[in-house]
């Protein structure tokens, strides 16, 4: 029973990733693309977690944490690039 539910949720996440991929490619503006990329990252995290429940293994936990960190840093970098146009300030006068 629980496995059928998990398989269906995997299917739903796959459809969601496909729709967000369309938005990331087609998206009219840059913030659309960035939010689509961030949400693809979150959905991939969910897919990995569901897979680790389905396969009854602990091996994916490090991958999930590391992917979360990298996705967070990437989203912060894109957001700062949109807002300021410069990724790393030389000296912001503090």
């Amino acid at each position: 029973m629980i496995e059928i539910l998990l398989m269906w949720s995997l299917f739903a996440f796959s459809v969601s990733i496909a729709v967000f991929l369309y938005r990331a490619i087609k998206g009219p503006s840059a913030p659309d693309r960035i939010i689509a990329m961030d949400t693809i990252g979150v959905n991939l995290l969910a897919v990995m977690a569901i897979l680790s429940v389905l396969l009854k293994t602990y091996a994916f936990f490090e991958v999930i944490l590391l992917f979360g960190i990298l996705s967070f840093v990437g989203t912060v970098a894109f957001a700062k690039f949109i807002e300021k146009g410069v990724l790393v300030d030389d000296d912001n006068g503090r």
Partner: peptide
Amino acid sequence: TVASAIILLLLAFDIKA
């Protein structure tokens, strides 16, 4: 992973800090 932590520091602060 340490490099990504320092990149996060660079994004939030600046090169001088």
